[in-house]
Write a protein that binds this DNA or RNA. Structure first.
Lengths: 341, 341
DNA sequence: CTGAAAGCGCTTACAG
DNA sequence: CTGAAAGCGCTTACAG
């Protein structure tokens, strides 16, 4: 069985309609709507009354056509959406961005970067479909970033690869500081042989987190333990934990560069009969389901990821409206102590 | 330090520009772009050539204004975005929807339903901002659904509350069948005393999953075990597991209505020293991080949630384009056997 | 098969 | 302070 639904195309009232009811010209109505200061108080009242009675809402397309503004911003995400959305980190960024956007006049649209035809995505972005873009995806070619930034306002949530010296705007956390915060906590708990499971070392975030761990340990007069590289996934964390355990270097704590990896590592530690935090203390980054849905729950650094998403939109809107912003905006971080340390 | 970036407003080529280069009128260019059959092959070639050389892309706003189409569809999500995005189920729906949308001419925009001012959301939706809406949020008042469905094409991903007899379109899984599939698997494994941790029983999905469990057990000539209600979260699952364990009814298996709850329940079973699947077998629903990031990994029914998101967009587009679709579209499900049974 | 013209619903100089 | 007019970039009857 199928159904056919017809939609009553109740054409919403137009500017002209409001003008007629208010007894003014549509120019005046337009001025009132756009808050022009040069309209009599009386006229404003009359127009607003008419607007309210008609339930008038400006036509977006018409406005967009003349203003050359779309009131849309794109969130550019990688083509591998399955992996992307599986990471609670990105879901949280989107959440914060969507939430903040809803308090503005801008709509947020999800734009999947086509890897087979990146040109398509760039075209879309440059051709006036959006007023600005939020980049959560590493474009195939980093030069594409620059080009895009020249066409429309762009805010990055991931560091572009390659060395970009052009003026770009980034919202991020201080990865080094976050890693240092977690590592210092381990030291404060009396641990002296601290290993790490790092993120991918071909990303700046991965390297910075590693550096924060190393520098903090060294600054405390200790010797950095072993390091195994992970890929931010639970299984990657588990594999790294196995390598750590199989190596000859003993350790009494491990700083793990993401909660997802920590969750995976914890399973391995349990399998090997190691107590957490008795035998091994764990501190990680990201305060999400992966740091609370474990036993014991994990001590972590809350990266305030939703705030990051919100800040990305906030900064982009400032840029769109012609404002100037810092090249780098850092989102505050916070240590959350739980039972794994 | 702040930076000021100026964007070269390289006005993209216009219809007129293409027309000039091709030596035809803009009407003809428009016809070619829109695939009108009544244009000479030669002309088509010449116009397409000009389009390619200029990198011309139609102006969305202008087209939208005259066509009274926006090429935008809204995904309406609840105001409690944090909880919403924390549930991998919804992240997966969005993922599938975004992915499918990117293969169409429609852009997907995330619209957060304002609970304090639901009128605002409805207004936005009805005022021609979008060509159609995908509903993943229970509107405060169910009558609002009907109203909305009368204004624009709407596809639901959640069952509206209250009894709606109007013509609405839903994309969903067969919850009863999914629960039955998981439960039957438990029976096939030789379990005879099967308890359940249900979803919220004030939702139809929760009730259907419970009913699938009950009916399957009864049909096998067994007696349904105890039932504890959960809220789809890990902690809710853990609490329900505790109640189950503290009751006097013994059980050798439990059907848990979501992987998130199962992950929480598993922690409790471990704490109490129960072996899975030795002492208790577990089967659940949802094939995501919560069913694989556990030890043992969970036998589950894959609800193909990303496919559901894709199907929602697919059906909505059919509706927008004037087609007729079934009132209910069911997404196929699949049993995935792992180590918990 | 193709072009000239009107119109989609706004905004904004330009006059007054 | 307000109105008439032009124009944003398209699509689509209407002629030919």
């Amino acid at each position: 069985m199928t159904t056919e639904t017809s939609h009553d195309t109740t054409l919403s009232p137009t500017l002209e309609g409001v003008a007629a009811l208010a007894g003014v010209s549509s120019s005046t109505v337009s001025r009132v709507i756009n808050g022009s200061p040069q309209v009599t108080e009386q006229t404003v009242a009359r127009v607003n009354d008419a607007i309210a009675r008609l339930g008038y809402v400006p036509n977006r397309a018409a406005r967009s056509l003349v203003r050359r503004r779309t009131q849309m911003i794109a969130m550019v995400i990688p083509e591998r959406t399955a992996e992307f959305f599986a990471d609670p980190y990105f879901a949280e960024v989107i959440q914060g961005a969507a939430m903040y956007a809803s308090s503005t006049d801008y709509s947020l649209t999800l734009l999947i970067e086509s890897e087979s035809a990146p040109e398509k995505t760039h075209q879309f972005l440059r051709r006036g479909n959006v007023d600005g873009a939020l980049i959560l995806s590493h474009f195939s070619a980093s030069s594409a970033y620059l080009e895009l930034s020249r066409s429309i306002p762009v805010v990055f949530g991931v560091r572009p690869t390659g060395d970009i010296d052009a003026e770009i705007h980034i919202v991020d956390v201080d990865n080094t500081a976050a890693a240092a915060l977690a590592t210092q906590h381990l030291i404060d708990r009396g641990r002296t042989r601290i290993a790490t499971i790092s993120g991918p070392l071909d990303t700046s975030a991965g390297r910075e987190r590693l550096e924060g761990w190393r520098a903090t340990i060294t600054a405390a007069g200790l010797v950095p333990g072993a390091c195994e590289e992970g890929d931010y996934t639970p299984s990657g964390g588990a594999a790294a934990a196995r390598r750590l355990l199989d190596s000859t270097t003993p350790f009494d704590a491990v700083f793990i560069a993401s909660a997802q990896m920590a969750a995976g590592a914890l399973v391995v530690l349990n399998e090997r009969g190691l107590e957490v935090p008795g035998d091994v203390a764990i501190a990680t980054l990201d305060n999400n389901a992966f740091s609370t849905n474990t036993s014991p729950q994990l001590t972590t650094v809350d990266l305030h990821t939703a705030d990051k998403g919100a800040a990305m939109v906030e900064k982009l809107v400032e840029l769109i409206q012609g404002g100037t912003i810092d090249p780098v905006t850092l989102v505050p971080i916070e240590l959350v102590t739980r039972d794994s340390t």
